[in-house]
Design a protein around this nucleic acid. Sequence first.
DNA 1: CGTTAACTTGATAGCATTCAACTAGCGTGG
DNA 2: CCACGCTAGTTGAATGCTATCAAGTTAACG
Lengths: 259, 259
Amino acid sequence: MSRTVKNLPSDQRTDWRFNLASTFLRKLSMHAPLTRPECERLLSLPVRSQRLAARTLLAAEGEQRQMACTLLEGHAYRYRTLADGSRQILSFHLPGDVVDLGSTLLGSADYGVATLSPALVGYLPHAAIIAAMAEHPGIARAFWRETFVDASITREWLLNVGRRDAFARLAHLLCETALRSSAAGIGHAGRFAFPVTQTDLGEATALTAVHVNRTLQRLRGDGLVSIQGGRVSIHDWDGLVQAGGFDRTYLHLPATIAA
Amino acid sequence: MSRTVKNLPSDQRTDWRFNLASTFLRKLSMHAPLTRPECERLLSLPVRSQRLAARTLLAAEGEQRQMACTLLEGHAYRYRTLADGSRQILSFHLPGDVVDLGSTLLGSADYGVATLSPALVGYLPHAAIIAAMAEHPGIARAFWRETFVDASITREWLLNVGRRDAFARLAHLLCETALRSSAAGIGHAGRFAFPVTQTDLGEATALTAVHVNRTLQRLRGDGLVSIQGGRVSIHDWDGLVQAGGFDRTYLHLPATIAA
DNA sequence: CGTTAACTTGATAGCATTCAACTAGCGTGG
DNA sequence: CCACGCTAGTTGAATGCTATCAAGTTAACG
């Protein structure tokens, strides 16, 4: 894939476009490799990029959009807010993820998206995505597949919140994030960035920040994981997997990806 | 659409193929109408149909499949089971739904699917779906859109289980099912079939059957809804919507669909 | 009319919430 | 340079929503 980038006209080999290849393209081609023309077609999309500060709103709940947004650097999350002010975080996002692909066909995302850390994002016009998919079946399949994996992760979260207790719930979330970080090419050997507060973890797992705090202490006390300064350190991967009842199948990652 | 069916060669106008048009095609073309050739292409898919009894396994968790399965009659649900035996129902399905579309690209569904009632299902070979999508961009978009809506509903369930109490959770589920039943062309005017036990409702909402029972009594006592013999009667739609904090946006239904 | 699944009801228990206060870290500005 | 203020994290006590346990009732069905 890096070869593809090197072969691009030099005026396109800008920083963020290289980034587009190493995140967005990397992820789309992870399962079924894209052909050379498909890669080039994707890299020539009229993408505009933007740097955003941490804790910045990327898309408001229900907002109409003309472009989908892909993360090139940094972390983000999707959320929904209830009338009483309570929030549910629906997913966390890493570089390579298209955070609101659904807006391409639905017009708007029915959730909000915000950054966790300073981030670099790329905007992909809906029309350009649809055109690229119509021209290249491989591109269409790659996007569709991403959509399925995204849905699969959401179902796992539903299972997590519905059926696991606080301890298993947090362990599971950390297992998932470890593997996905590894697949995204960030983090290594049981240590990765995850710039969330305990309040965020609570909003993601449907627990209060207070209870997250106590449970995190127990996870650390049991020698499984610790979180400090927005970084997760996994001390006992097998133990964490067992504590969370974690089975990576639902992530649909290549077998070569390890924590 | 019914016109399309009438124009088919008479040897194809079998019972279940007519059914395919009035459920599957109806749903796929609900948002953006499919062209005549697209409809005919879909109706000429090599579909095989099968009648199943209530409470029959349609696909086991993780099972490899060569075909996707669409509901033509009856109700079904997706679920996941945990090691300790507890189950989470991930979604309920009505006629027209493709219950395991994701298996088309992922090879297997990471959840199980079973019928709630006697059902008629149609099997769509993965290869045929992919071929039809490659030939007709409109078909590709219709399937992709279905995938987004399905994911949107799952996110709403995550929000439901994560943030709403038992009362609101059940109210919300019933609102959703009422609208979707109406969109599927079954049920009318606040009365529709929903052949679930209270145990099922508990597995869907992450509550125990006992608590579902008490909460259902309260919903009936408040004059909002009642369930009897696998049928839901809505007595106060506005009240139910308010109780569930229900906002239909996430279902992405045409405005013409009403409860 | 016997058997089983679904539903109902009451009492008790527990995981997580809520409320409240306190500590630590960090950037800002006087 | 340190006070100030704000956010994140921590700890303790009390409350509560829902689970669990147990038993009884109704409904469905052969």
